[in-house]
Design a protein around this nucleic acid. Structure first.
Lengths: 206, 206
DNA sequence: CGGTGGTGACAATACAGATTGTCACTTCCC
DNA sequence: GGGAAGTGACAATCTGTATTGTCACCACCG
Protein backbone atom coordinates (compact mmCIF):
# COMPACT_ATOMS: atom_id res chain seq x y z
CA UNK A 1 0.00 0.00 0.00
CA UNK A 2 1.29 3.42 -0.93
CA UNK A 3 0.98 5.30 2.29
CA UNK A 4 0.73 9.05 1.87
CA UNK A 5 4.13 10.34 2.70
CA UNK A 6 2.93 13.63 4.17
CA UNK A 7 6.38 15.05 4.02
CA UNK A 8 6.45 18.66 5.12
CA UNK A 9 7.28 21.34 2.59
CA UNK A 10 7.65 25.01 3.35
CA UNK A 11 5.94 24.42 6.62
CA UNK A 12 2.85 22.64 5.27
CA UNK A 13 1.78 19.04 4.89
CA UNK A 14 0.96 17.52 1.52
CA UNK A 15 -2.82 17.67 1.88
CA UNK A 16 -2.62 21.21 3.03
CA UNK A 17 -0.53 22.28 0.07
CA UNK A 18 -2.83 20.55 -2.32
CA UNK A 19 -5.85 22.26 -0.83
CA UNK A 20 -4.11 25.60 -1.10
CA UNK A 21 -3.40 25.07 -4.75
CA UNK A 22 -6.97 24.06 -5.34
CA UNK A 23 -8.16 27.22 -3.66
CA UNK A 24 -5.72 29.31 -5.68
CA UNK A 25 -7.02 27.78 -8.86
CA UNK A 26 -10.61 28.36 -7.94
CA UNK A 27 -10.02 31.99 -7.11
CA UNK A 28 -8.11 32.43 -10.35
CA UNK A 29 -10.93 30.77 -12.25
CA UNK A 30 -13.49 33.24 -10.99
CA UNK A 31 -11.32 36.09 -12.14
CA UNK A 32 -10.56 34.65 -15.53
CA UNK A 33 -14.13 33.54 -16.18
CA UNK A 34 -15.45 36.96 -15.34
CA UNK A 35 -12.99 38.61 -17.69
CA UNK A 36 -13.26 36.45 -20.77
CA UNK A 37 -16.18 34.18 -20.09
CA UNK A 38 -15.86 30.50 -19.46
CA UNK A 39 -16.01 29.79 -23.12
CA UNK A 40 -12.78 31.62 -23.80
CA UNK A 41 -11.00 30.63 -20.62
CA UNK A 42 -8.30 28.10 -21.25
CA UNK A 43 -6.91 25.87 -18.58
CA UNK A 44 -3.60 27.56 -19.12
CA UNK A 45 -5.04 31.02 -18.54
CA UNK A 46 -6.47 29.93 -15.21
CA UNK A 47 -3.18 28.34 -14.22
CA UNK A 48 -1.20 31.41 -15.19
CA UNK A 49 -3.53 33.57 -13.16
CA UNK A 50 -3.06 31.25 -10.22
CA UNK A 51 0.70 31.19 -10.68
CA UNK A 52 0.66 27.42 -11.05
CA UNK A 53 1.28 25.07 -13.91
CA UNK A 54 -1.19 22.81 -15.65
CA UNK A 55 0.00 19.83 -13.72
CA UNK A 56 -1.68 21.17 -10.64
CA UNK A 57 -4.86 21.78 -12.50
CA UNK A 58 -5.14 18.10 -13.30
CA UNK A 59 -4.19 17.29 -9.75
CA UNK A 60 -7.41 18.89 -8.51
CA UNK A 61 -9.80 18.66 -11.45
CA UNK A 62 -10.29 16.20 -14.24
CA UNK A 63 -11.26 18.89 -16.72
CA UNK A 64 -12.30 22.44 -17.21
CA UNK A 65 -15.99 21.85 -16.81
CA UNK A 66 -15.56 20.14 -13.48
CA UNK A 67 -13.79 23.20 -12.22
CA UNK A 68 -16.60 25.41 -13.41
CA UNK A 69 -19.14 23.44 -11.47
CA UNK A 70 -16.90 23.34 -8.42
CA UNK A 71 -16.38 27.07 -8.48
CA UNK A 72 -20.00 27.88 -9.12
CA UNK A 73 -21.17 25.54 -6.38
CA UNK A 74 -18.78 26.99 -3.88
CA UNK A 75 -19.93 30.47 -4.73
CA UNK A 76 -23.57 29.49 -4.42
CA UNK A 77 -23.09 27.71 -1.12
CA UNK A 78 -21.26 30.62 0.35
CA UNK A 79 -23.92 33.02 -0.82
CA UNK A 80 -26.84 30.97 0.38
CA UNK A 81 -25.42 30.36 3.80
CA UNK A 82 -24.54 34.00 4.19
CA UNK A 83 -28.05 35.02 3.23
CA UNK A 84 -29.52 32.48 5.59
CA UNK A 85 -27.48 33.90 8.40
CA UNK A 86 -28.71 37.39 7.63
CA UNK A 87 -32.30 36.21 7.60
CA UNK A 88 -32.06 34.41 10.89
CA UNK A 89 -31.65 37.67 12.73
CA UNK A 90 -34.58 39.38 11.09
CA UNK A 91 -38.35 39.37 11.54
CA UNK A 92 -40.25 37.35 8.94
CA UNK A 93 -41.78 40.32 7.18
CA UNK A 94 -38.37 41.82 6.57
CA UNK A 95 -37.15 38.57 5.12
CA UNK A 96 -37.48 39.34 1.44
CA UNK A 97 -36.05 42.80 1.79
CA UNK A 98 -33.12 41.42 3.73
CA UNK A 99 -32.38 38.78 1.13
CA UNK A 100 -32.56 41.23 -1.70
CA UNK A 101 -30.44 43.83 -0.02
CA UNK A 102 -27.69 41.44 0.84
CA UNK A 103 -27.89 39.55 -2.40
CA UNK A 104 -27.44 42.63 -4.50
CA UNK A 105 -24.87 43.90 -2.05
CA UNK A 106 -22.83 40.76 -2.43
CA UNK A 107 -22.95 41.00 -6.18
CA UNK A 108 -21.71 44.54 -6.07
CA UNK A 109 -18.93 43.65 -3.69
CA UNK A 110 -17.86 40.71 -5.82
CA UNK A 111 -18.44 41.80 -9.39
CA UNK A 112 -16.18 39.05 -10.67
CA UNK A 113 -18.41 36.41 -9.12
CA UNK A 114 -21.43 38.22 -10.43
CA UNK A 115 -20.19 38.27 -13.99
CA UNK A 116 -18.85 34.76 -13.85
CA UNK A 117 -21.97 33.11 -12.57
CA UNK A 118 -24.81 35.20 -13.85
CA UNK A 119 -23.57 36.20 -17.26
CA UNK A 120 -21.20 33.54 -18.38
CA UNK A 121 -22.57 30.25 -17.33
CA UNK A 122 -25.56 29.11 -19.30
CA UNK A 123 -25.50 26.51 -22.02
CA UNK A 124 -22.02 25.22 -21.32
CA UNK A 125 -23.06 21.62 -21.02
CA UNK A 126 -25.91 19.48 -19.75
CA UNK A 127 -24.12 19.01 -16.45
CA UNK A 128 -23.71 22.69 -15.86
CA UNK A 129 -27.25 23.39 -16.91
CA UNK A 130 -28.52 20.79 -14.50
CA UNK A 131 -26.49 22.41 -11.79
CA UNK A 132 -28.00 25.77 -12.63
CA UNK A 133 -31.47 24.36 -12.32
CA UNK A 134 -30.59 23.17 -8.85
CA UNK A 135 -29.13 26.52 -7.97
CA UNK A 136 -32.28 28.30 -9.08
CA UNK A 137 -34.40 26.02 -6.97
CA UNK A 138 -32.11 26.47 -4.03
CA UNK A 139 -32.43 30.20 -4.30
CA UNK A 140 -36.18 29.98 -4.76
CA UNK A 141 -36.49 27.94 -1.58
CA UNK A 142 -34.50 30.52 0.24
CA UNK A 143 -36.78 33.25 -1.00
CA UNK A 144 -40.07 31.56 -0.17
CA UNK A 145 -38.55 30.02 2.93
CA UNK A 146 -39.89 26.57 2.18
CA UNK A 147 -39.05 23.48 0.16
CA UNK A 148 -40.47 23.82 -3.31
CA UNK A 149 -42.01 20.41 -2.94
CA UNK A 150 -44.54 21.87 -0.55
CA UNK A 151 -45.80 24.33 -3.12
CA UNK A 152 -48.53 23.86 -5.68
CA UNK A 153 -47.31 23.61 -9.23
CA UNK A 154 -48.35 27.15 -9.93
CA UNK A 155 -46.75 28.53 -6.81
CA UNK A 156 -43.61 26.67 -7.64
CA UNK A 157 -43.48 28.36 -11.01
CA UNK A 158 -44.20 31.69 -9.43
CA UNK A 159 -41.26 31.19 -7.11
CA UNK A 160 -39.01 30.24 -10.01
CA UNK A 161 -40.24 33.26 -11.87
CA UNK A 162 -39.46 35.49 -8.93
CA UNK A 163 -35.91 34.23 -8.88
CA UNK A 164 -35.74 34.94 -12.59
CA UNK A 165 -36.87 38.47 -11.95
CA UNK A 166 -34.34 39.01 -9.20
CA UNK A 167 -31.56 37.61 -11.33
CA UNK A 168 -32.50 39.56 -14.45
CA UNK A 169 -32.60 42.75 -12.50
CA UNK A 170 -29.15 41.86 -11.27
CA UNK A 171 -27.98 41.14 -14.82
CA UNK A 172 -29.26 44.48 -15.97
CA UNK A 173 -27.61 46.19 -13.06
CA UNK A 174 -24.32 44.49 -13.76
CA UNK A 175 -24.42 45.27 -17.46
CA UNK A 176 -24.94 48.90 -16.52
CA UNK A 177 -21.93 48.71 -14.24
CA UNK A 178 -23.91 48.93 -11.01
CA UNK A 179 -24.81 52.49 -11.76
CA UNK A 180 -28.22 52.49 -10.08
CA UNK A 181 -28.21 52.86 -6.29
CA UNK A 182 -28.74 49.58 -4.55
CA UNK A 183 -31.87 50.78 -2.79
CA UNK A 184 -33.57 51.36 -6.11
CA UNK A 185 -32.59 47.90 -7.22
CA UNK A 186 -33.94 46.35 -4.06
CA UNK A 187 -37.09 48.35 -4.36
CA UNK A 188 -37.71 47.21 -7.91
CA UNK A 189 -37.18 43.58 -7.01
CA UNK A 190 -39.33 43.97 -3.95
CA UNK A 191 -42.27 45.11 -6.00
CA UNK A 192 -42.18 41.86 -7.88
CA UNK A 193 -41.56 40.10 -4.62
CA UNK A 194 -44.91 41.16 -3.24
CA UNK A 195 -46.33 38.10 -4.87
CA UNK A 196 -43.79 35.93 -3.16
CA UNK A 197 -44.62 37.45 0.15
CA UNK A 198 -48.13 36.19 -0.37
CA UNK A 199 -46.93 32.67 -0.92
CA UNK A 200 -44.53 32.81 1.94
CA UNK A 201 -47.14 34.05 4.38
CA UNK A 202 -49.62 31.44 3.30
CA UNK A 203 -47.06 28.80 4.07
CA UNK A 204 -46.23 30.29 7.41
CA UNK A 205 -49.87 30.15 8.43
CA UNK A 206 -50.45 26.63 7.23
CA UNK B 1 -16.20 47.40 -62.63
CA UNK B 2 -17.23 43.80 -61.98
CA UNK B 3 -20.85 43.83 -62.92
CA UNK B 4 -22.92 41.11 -61.28
CA UNK B 5 -23.56 38.62 -64.00
CA UNK B 6 -26.94 37.52 -62.69
CA UNK B 7 -26.86 34.44 -64.77
CA UNK B 8 -29.88 32.22 -64.21
CA UNK B 9 -29.46 28.81 -62.65
CA UNK B 10 -32.17 26.25 -62.22
CA UNK B 11 -34.71 28.94 -62.85
CA UNK B 12 -33.46 31.42 -60.24
CA UNK B 13 -31.28 34.50 -60.33
CA UNK B 14 -28.05 34.78 -58.39
CA UNK B 15 -29.42 36.94 -55.57
CA UNK B 16 -32.37 34.69 -55.20
CA UNK B 17 -30.24 31.59 -54.93
CA UNK B 18 -28.00 33.24 -52.41
CA UNK B 19 -30.95 34.28 -50.29
CA UNK B 20 -32.31 30.77 -50.38
CA UNK B 21 -29.04 29.35 -49.18
CA UNK B 22 -28.91 31.89 -46.41
CA UNK B 23 -32.38 30.91 -45.33
CA UNK B 24 -31.48 27.22 -45.47
CA UNK B 25 -28.48 27.86 -43.28
CA UNK B 26 -30.45 29.85 -40.76
CA UNK B 27 -33.09 27.18 -40.44
CA UNK B 28 -30.41 24.54 -40.07
CA UNK B 29 -28.70 26.63 -37.44
CA UNK B 30 -31.78 26.77 -35.25
CA UNK B 31 -32.05 23.03 -35.37
CA UNK B 32 -28.40 22.35 -34.68
CA UNK B 33 -28.16 24.96 -31.94
CA UNK B 34 -31.16 23.55 -30.18
CA UNK B 35 -29.74 20.06 -30.29
CA UNK B 36 -26.18 20.63 -29.19
CA UNK B 37 -26.10 24.22 -28.08
CA UNK B 38 -24.29 26.94 -29.91
CA UNK B 39 -21.04 26.19 -28.18
CA UNK B 40 -20.90 22.72 -29.59
CA UNK B 41 -22.23 23.59 -33.01
CA UNK B 42 -19.54 23.64 -35.65
CA UNK B 43 -19.91 25.47 -38.90
CA UNK B 44 -19.68 22.15 -40.63
CA UNK B 45 -22.55 20.69 -38.63
CA UNK B 46 -24.80 23.56 -39.65
CA UNK B 47 -23.77 23.21 -43.27
CA UNK B 48 -24.38 19.48 -43.26
CA UNK B 49 -27.80 20.02 -41.77
CA UNK B 50 -28.54 22.57 -44.47
CA UNK B 51 -27.20 20.30 -47.18
CA UNK B 52 -24.67 22.91 -48.23
CA UNK B 53 -20.93 23.16 -48.01
CA UNK B 54 -18.87 25.53 -45.96
CA UNK B 55 -18.24 27.74 -48.90
CA UNK B 56 -21.82 28.93 -48.76
CA UNK B 57 -21.58 29.57 -45.11
CA UNK B 58 -18.84 32.10 -45.69
CA UNK B 59 -20.79 33.52 -48.56
CA UNK B 60 -23.51 34.66 -46.17
CA UNK B 61 -21.73 35.07 -42.83
CA UNK B 62 -18.26 36.07 -41.81
CA UNK B 63 -18.25 33.73 -38.85
CA UNK B 64 -20.27 31.56 -36.58
CA UNK B 65 -21.15 34.26 -34.13
CA UNK B 66 -22.55 36.53 -36.79
CA UNK B 67 -24.89 33.78 -37.78
CA UNK B 68 -26.02 33.30 -34.21
CA UNK B 69 -26.97 36.93 -33.90
CA UNK B 70 -28.67 36.89 -37.29
CA UNK B 71 -30.73 33.86 -36.40
CA UNK B 72 -31.62 35.09 -32.95
CA UNK B 73 -32.61 38.51 -34.24
CA UNK B 74 -34.81 37.04 -36.91
CA UNK B 75 -36.50 34.83 -34.35
CA UNK B 76 -37.06 37.74 -32.00
CA UNK B 77 -38.45 39.99 -34.71
CA UNK B 78 -40.84 37.38 -35.88
CA UNK B 79 -41.99 36.71 -32.34
CA UNK B 80 -42.43 40.34 -31.40
CA UNK B 81 -44.37 41.23 -34.49
CA UNK B 82 -46.59 38.23 -34.06
CA UNK B 83 -47.30 39.15 -30.47
CA UNK B 84 -47.98 42.72 -31.44
CA UNK B 85 -50.51 41.55 -33.95
CA UNK B 86 -52.26 39.45 -31.35
CA UNK B 87 -52.40 42.36 -28.94
CA UNK B 88 -53.84 44.75 -31.46
CA UNK B 89 -57.08 42.82 -31.55
CA UNK B 90 -57.51 42.66 -27.81
CA UNK B 91 -58.76 45.00 -25.11
CA UNK B 92 -56.00 46.60 -23.02
CA UNK B 93 -56.76 44.71 -19.84
CA UNK B 94 -56.33 41.40 -21.63
CA UNK B 95 -53.03 42.53 -23.04
CA UNK B 96 -50.70 40.81 -20.60
CA UNK B 97 -52.65 37.60 -20.64
CA UNK B 98 -52.65 37.61 -24.42
CA UNK B 99 -48.93 38.14 -24.63
CA UNK B 100 -48.22 35.41 -22.15
CA UNK B 101 -50.53 32.93 -23.71
CA UNK B 102 -49.14 33.37 -27.17
CA UNK B 103 -45.57 33.68 -26.05
CA UNK B 104 -45.64 30.40 -24.20
CA UNK B 105 -47.69 28.90 -26.99
CA UNK B 106 -45.07 29.86 -29.54
CA UNK B 107 -42.32 28.36 -27.44
CA UNK B 108 -44.17 25.11 -27.16
CA UNK B 109 -44.84 25.02 -30.89
CA UNK B 110 -41.23 25.75 -31.70
CA UNK B 111 -39.22 24.01 -29.03
CA UNK B 112 -36.10 24.23 -31.19
CA UNK B 113 -36.26 28.00 -31.17
CA UNK B 114 -37.03 27.95 -27.48
CA UNK B 115 -34.02 25.88 -26.62
CA UNK B 116 -31.75 27.69 -29.00
CA UNK B 117 -32.52 31.17 -27.83
CA UNK B 118 -33.41 30.81 -24.20
CA UNK B 119 -31.13 28.07 -23.01
CA UNK B 120 -28.12 28.17 -25.22
CA UNK B 121 -27.29 31.73 -25.84
CA UNK B 122 -25.86 33.52 -22.84
CA UNK B 123 -22.21 34.31 -22.36
CA UNK B 124 -21.14 33.56 -25.90
CA UNK B 125 -19.48 36.88 -26.49
CA UNK B 126 -19.88 40.57 -25.68
CA UNK B 127 -21.65 41.11 -28.97
CA UNK B 128 -24.21 38.43 -28.33
CA UNK B 129 -24.72 39.60 -24.78
CA UNK B 130 -25.32 43.11 -26.00
CA UNK B 131 -27.84 41.77 -28.42
CA UNK B 132 -29.58 39.90 -25.61
CA UNK B 133 -29.83 43.07 -23.61
CA UNK B 134 -31.57 44.70 -26.53
CA UNK B 135 -33.86 41.75 -26.92
CA UNK B 136 -34.84 41.90 -23.27
CA UNK B 137 -35.63 45.57 -23.55
CA UNK B 138 -37.61 45.00 -26.69
CA UNK B 139 -39.68 42.38 -24.94
CA UNK B 140 -40.10 44.57 -21.89
CA UNK B 141 -41.43 47.39 -24.01
CA UNK B 142 -43.90 45.03 -25.55
CA UNK B 143 -45.07 43.93 -22.14
CA UNK B 144 -45.50 47.37 -20.64
CA UNK B 145 -46.65 48.72 -23.98
CA UNK B 146 -44.37 51.73 -23.81
CA UNK B 147 -40.79 52.73 -24.55
CA UNK B 148 -38.64 52.04 -21.54
CA UNK B 149 -37.28 55.55 -21.78
CA UNK B 150 -40.61 56.83 -20.52
CA UNK B 151 -40.36 54.84 -17.31
CA UNK B 152 -38.75 55.84 -14.06
CA UNK B 153 -35.55 54.03 -13.27
CA UNK B 154 -37.30 51.80 -10.80
CA UNK B 155 -40.15 51.00 -13.14
CA UNK B 156 -37.68 50.21 -15.86
CA UNK B 157 -36.03 47.69 -13.61
CA UNK B 158 -39.35 46.25 -12.63
CA UNK B 159 -40.18 45.77 -16.28
CA UNK B 160 -36.83 44.09 -16.91
CA UNK B 161 -37.45 41.93 -13.89
CA UNK B 162 -40.84 40.92 -15.16
CA UNK B 163 -39.32 39.80 -18.42
CA UNK B 164 -36.82 37.83 -16.42
CA UNK B 165 -39.62 36.15 -14.56
CA UNK B 166 -41.49 35.31 -17.72
CA UNK B 167 -38.37 33.92 -19.33
CA UNK B 168 -37.30 31.91 -16.30
CA UNK B 169 -40.70 30.36 -16.03
CA UNK B 170 -40.33 29.46 -19.68
CA UNK B 171 -36.89 27.99 -19.04
CA UNK B 172 -38.24 25.89 -16.23
CA UNK B 173 -41.12 24.77 -18.38
CA UNK B 174 -38.81 23.83 -21.22
CA UNK B 175 -36.44 21.95 -18.95
CA UNK B 176 -39.41 19.97 -17.70
CA UNK B 177 -40.35 19.20 -21.31
CA UNK B 178 -43.45 21.39 -21.33
CA UNK B 179 -45.17 19.04 -18.94
CA UNK B 180 -47.27 21.64 -17.13
CA UNK B 181 -50.42 22.77 -18.93
CA UNK B 182 -49.98 26.11 -20.62
CA UNK B 183 -52.77 27.70 -18.63
CA UNK B 184 -50.92 27.02 -15.41
CA UNK B 185 -47.81 28.57 -16.85
CA UNK B 186 -49.67 31.64 -17.97
CA UNK B 187 -51.35 31.91 -14.63
CA UNK B 188 -48.06 31.79 -12.77
CA UNK B 189 -46.54 34.44 -14.96
CA UNK B 190 -49.63 36.53 -14.70
CA UNK B 191 -49.38 36.65 -10.95
CA UNK B 192 -46.02 38.26 -11.25
CA UNK B 193 -47.38 40.38 -14.05
CA UNK B 194 -49.86 42.07 -11.75
CA UNK B 195 -47.16 44.54 -10.97
CA UNK B 196 -46.61 45.25 -14.63
CA UNK B 197 -50.28 45.83 -15.11
CA UNK B 198 -49.96 48.57 -12.56
CA UNK B 199 -47.19 50.23 -14.51
CA UNK B 200 -48.92 49.80 -17.79
CA UNK B 201 -52.16 51.28 -16.57
CA UNK B 202 -50.39 54.23 -15.03
CA UNK B 203 -48.84 54.94 -18.39
CA UNK B 204 -52.11 54.58 -20.22
CA UNK B 205 -53.67 57.17 -17.96
CA UNK B 206 -50.84 59.65 -18.20
C1' DC C 1 25.88 15.29 2.97
C1' DG C 2 22.81 12.31 -0.13
C1' DG C 3 18.80 10.79 -1.86
C1' DT C 4 13.97 11.40 -2.62
C1' DG C 5 9.84 13.91 -2.84
C1' DG C 6 8.14 18.23 -4.59
C1' DT C 7 8.26 21.80 -7.96
C1' DG C 8 8.42 24.75 -12.21
C1' DA C 9 9.38 25.40 -16.97
C1' DC C 10 8.45 23.70 -20.98
C1' DA C 11 8.34 20.17 -24.90
C1' DA C 12 5.51 16.57 -27.20
C1' DT C 13 1.38 14.78 -28.55
C1' DA C 14 -3.25 14.78 -29.98
C1' DC C 15 -7.26 16.60 -31.67
C1' DA C 16 -10.90 19.66 -33.28
C1' DG C 17 -12.57 23.28 -35.64
C1' DA C 18 -12.24 27.52 -38.81
C1' DT C 19 -11.11 29.10 -43.03
C1' DT C 20 -9.22 28.75 -47.61
C1' DG C 21 -8.19 26.34 -51.73
C1' DT C 22 -8.45 22.69 -55.48
C1' DC C 23 -10.72 20.13 -58.96
C1' DA C 24 -13.99 17.63 -61.50
C1' DC C 25 -18.51 18.00 -62.89
C1' DT C 26 -23.21 20.68 -64.25
C1' DT C 27 -25.97 23.98 -66.10
C1' DC C 28 -26.38 27.85 -68.65
C1' DC C 29 -25.93 31.15 -72.48
C1' DC C 30 -24.47 32.28 -77.05
C1' DG D 1 -21.26 22.53 -79.19
C1' DG D 2 -18.02 25.21 -76.33
C1' DG D 3 -16.58 28.11 -72.82
C1' DA D 4 -17.57 30.17 -68.39
C1' DA D 5 -20.30 30.56 -64.22
C1' DG D 6 -22.06 27.71 -60.58
C1' DT D 7 -21.77 23.79 -57.67
C1' DG D 8 -20.34 19.96 -54.49
C1' DA D 9 -16.92 17.02 -52.47
C1' DC D 10 -13.10 17.24 -50.13
C1' DA D 11 -8.08 18.28 -49.24
C1' DA D 12 -4.91 21.56 -47.03
C1' DT D 13 -3.68 24.82 -43.82
C1' DC D 14 -3.79 27.15 -39.63
C1' DT D 15 -4.75 27.93 -35.00
C1' DG D 16 -5.79 26.99 -30.43
C1' DT D 17 -6.21 24.03 -26.70
C1' DA D 18 -6.27 19.82 -23.71
C1' DT D 19 -3.52 16.54 -21.81
C1' DT D 20 0.66 14.02 -20.90
C1' DG D 21 5.44 13.70 -20.34
C1' DT D 22 10.40 15.11 -19.54
C1' DC D 23 14.02 17.07 -17.01
C1' DA D 24 16.68 20.02 -14.16
C1' DC D 25 16.51 22.13 -9.80
C1' DC D 26 15.08 22.85 -4.83
C1' DA D 27 13.83 21.72 0.04
C1' DC D 28 13.45 18.43 3.30
C1' DC D 29 14.70 14.32 6.27
C1' DG D 30 17.76 11.20 8.29
Amino acid sequence: MAQTTERRWRGRGADERKAERRALLMAAAVKVYSERGFRHSSVKAVCDEAGLTERYFYESFTNSEEMLVAVASASLEQMVSELQAKCAAVSPDKRLQTILFHYYGMLREQPAHARAFLVEIRGISPIVDAYLETATERFAELVVNSPLSRLSRTDRMVAIGAVGAIVHIALDWILNDFSAPIDDVVQAAEKLGTIIDGIEKAIRVA
